[in-house]
Write a protein that binds this DNA or RNA. Sequence first.
DNA 1: CTTGAGTTGGTTTTT
DNA 2: CCAACTCAAG
Length: 713
Amino acid sequence: MDNSPPQQLTPSQKQAVCHIEGPLLVLAGPGSGKTRVITHRIAALIDSGVRPYNICAITFTNKAAEEMRQRAFALGASAGAHISTFHSLCVRLLRRHADKAGVKSNFSIYDQADQRRCIKQAVKDCQLDTTNFPPAKILDAVSTLKNKLIDAKPFEENADDFFSKTLAHIYLRYQHLLGERNSLDFDDLLMKTAFLLEGCPDVNAEIGNRFKFVLIDEYQDTNHAQYRIAKALVAQHNNICATGDPDQSIYRWRGADIHNILAFESDWPEATIIKLEENFRSTPNILTAADNLIANNRKRKLKKLLPTRPEGGDIVITASDNETAEARSIARHIEELIDQNAALNDIAVFYRVNSMSRTLEEAFIHAKVPYQIVRGVEFYNRKEIRDILAYLKTIVNPDDEVALLRIINTPTRGIGKVTIDRVRAYAADSRISLFEAIKRAEHIDTLSNSAKGRLAAFADMFRRFAKANLGPAAPLAEIVFVESGLADSLLAAGVEGKDASENANELINAAADYDRKADEPSLIDYLQEISLFSDADAYDPTAGRVALMTLHAAKGLEFENVFIVGVEEGLLPHERTNSHDDLDELEEERRLFFVGITRAKTNLHLSYAQYRTIRGQCLRTIPSQFLFELGCTFEEQQFEDDEDDFDDWEYEDSTESIPTVRFAVGQLVRHQSFGLGRVTEFVDVGENSTVTVKFNTGQTKSLMIKYACLEKA
DNA sequence: CTTGAGTTGGTTTTT
DNA sequence: CCAACTCAAG
């Protein structure tokens, strides 16, 4: 049961803990006790006389930060060290030095949905068409620029081609809109902090006095902005300890630059490098499979995966007819595990895309398997929650037009499009904010008297809210929920609104929870904190439920029994990654699978479906190339569903293959011209079946069986 | 001003 | 396939 690292630290772990002064890179493989090393290190630093106040540890998620605080505390480290994510640290620094950073301290933080709306607005403002300039693409480009710390103005100055120039316009407009609304997006938090630290000597000096020892976890997933922040944080003392694993870098698409960790030695030439290659988590066969898989990546630092656990456990690959059968198969396997006394907390199911959770959920409900879907942000994306939060955001930051427009007529209070347009026009003319204009509604001549009255009532409501904004978040959230009329409107919606009401109450409870935990609770702080919530933060390891999550969310976790579903071409690697043409993309998908596999302590269960319904279309699938790279011999089970309600045609369809020569993966074959080789993949699509063969000449070929004349050797 | 029917378009992972 | 948006009727 307990596979935690040995009580005694291993020599290399000890070395990493005790290396106090100077830059240190800990290259830690999965399950190497990395977290343990970091917490011990924090404790050791404090032990050796460093004040907790002078320590800054940066984690990847809030959850990880929380855990690290507790663990360090359990090791006897006194409280006081700053432990948070990069983003939370940035929020703190930007609020503290708001004037120097060029922001107001009550800024809102834009999430993805807000960003998209805002960029859309910016595109329109530039008189451009959203079909030629899709907001999602533009947002991506802007985000990339920000992650590289290229601000709008310098970008515009250097833009020479048409697209860059247009992009520059949109980027400038977007930043302008954000500024007007006193809002920052996720990338701004990093970019503005980097500029603040690099551009203000006094802030930098203050940082130097404060943070004398800096620890950064998951360094392989830092982007350029985070790298520059890290550099600035350690500039004066050079005491950086970065930990990470290049093989677990899975956020390239978000700007993470694997180069940061690969080039650590050239950044800090005097750096000590310590490798943690022993694995205390997984059984040898799981590690062999993981190692075989990742060996296919060409661009990597070689690192061993040394097992310390005895043999045991299974790797099982299941092929099911379709995703429903796959989900049932998983549910049944879980029932078996439960029969063998496995704890529900010890079981997890991973998938590549969130939409795959639906089918699993249905199967688990049917089989009465308790589960939790680890998706923290989902709660905050619900309409009723976003509504309440929009009220709260407007209280804190009346310039946040997105929030204001969301709730100005929610619930409906007779302030429609026409009225809003007139107020906006007035606001633009008088060069005041929309909220300011609403307060002056009675002076707006274009408005009808009834509209004036409604706007006045709206403004009055916010005056009452402002008076009630006295620290703790929960009481205000409750007042807002009731006085805004949201509570009544949900009540009026009957059954439909019942869930929504419960969610609203849950939000108020969550706020109360925050109030209890925070040193100095405030609405601003609360809003900024929940903006930085991540999916993984919602994971409750003590829930007594099977955990369902994306492969990305699985990072940093471990389970006795791991299921990975949908191990198919197009899904893992995902087709949208362009991994067909781009080797880097393919390698990242492989790392993602590697991360998934190495979460498993004892039993690993991989599965794919032969047909999968995607966007309503039932399509034939191909097992993922990654499956064949695992290399170890495994028992492949064909899952047969014995329930009667299974659609007949699916059987027909899948059994109606034209008789053709079949090849097993691993089969030795001979080809007339290429000679001997081994089958690495067999794609069964009837008469057009193909095999991929790795020939002894070194080349790998995909061949159509009906033409290739392969013979089994 | 609100509502609902109809259309369009986007469709991975997330701080 | 679903969510977000548009538009016309009430």
